[in-house]
Design a protein around this nucleic acid. Sequence first.
DNA 1: CTAAATCCTACAAATCCTATGGGGTTATAG
DNA 2: CTATAACCCCATAGGATTTGTAGGATTTAG
Lengths: 134, 134
Amino acid sequence: MLSKKAQYAFRALTVLVEHNGEGPLPISAIVREQPMSTKFLETILLELRRGGILGSRKGKGGGYYLMCSPKDVSFAQVIRILDGAIAPLKCVSLNFYERCDDCDEQDCGLHRIMAEVRDSKLKVLEKRTLADLA
Amino acid sequence: MLSKKAQYAFRALTVLVEHNGEGPLPISAIVREQPMSTKFLETILLELRRGGILGSRKGKGGGYYLMCSPKDVSFAQVIRILDGAIAPLKCVSLNFYERCDDCDEQDCGLHRIMAEVRDSKLKVLEKRTLADLA
DNA sequence: CTAAATCCTACAAATCCTATGGGGTTATAG
DNA sequence: CTATAACCCCATAGGATTTGTAGGATTTAG
């Protein structure tokens, strides 16, 4: 399940996509279009900035803006920044791999099938981009 | 992400599949093959029984057994019993639907794409069965 | 009757998610 | 230069969920 954080992120990104190219958009303006906790959104946008998806400008007239064209930011990127692994198990995650203590990974049926699930999710989440939010 | 509960469930089900047809298998025997907390597993097997996947027999010589042939129990069934929704959002869940307060569902980009993710997960999870665990 | 099992409910412990608070820093306008 | 608007950062509170445990009740075989 997507966390609230990721859900809010997509709502905020929708607004940023709509205003893409108009220069930095302050949090207050985002919240005006998509009502949510300003403070919580602040931490989310910060994470997206650290994740390289957003840029920011400080001070008066500042705000957040997309670093790339919407069509170049996949859903997978956004979800990984905010929720971490897309795979249903750490031991089949491409980006957040952790060894599994209980199975030998080569000969584990669960492992094999969860890798299939991972791939089928990624097929959608890497194809879909912020441009599809509109 | 799969919960520990679901992971333990699949490990236990693997054992039950291997011993399918041999009559009831007690928890103690399952734990001997797949080490884990006996008590925790007890609650898990109980849920699987209530979910209709397992049957049980009480008393001496009792234990748990599969209600159907392994090939007739999909991963989706197991996951729904233990973890609930497979969809990444309640508002696109087939079995655990809840209305979404923040979007109008018809015209929500996130909604649309998460439904795609749900479908791609289900395509794998409904096809794969306990028979694939071996 | 006794031992081996499941059944059931409540709860304890730990972790994670959600959200808030407060102060600090930076940049612009005037 | 000052006021103000805005992002930056961290700590933490509160709640929800997950994970695991305890203890007793019930059932069945021998």
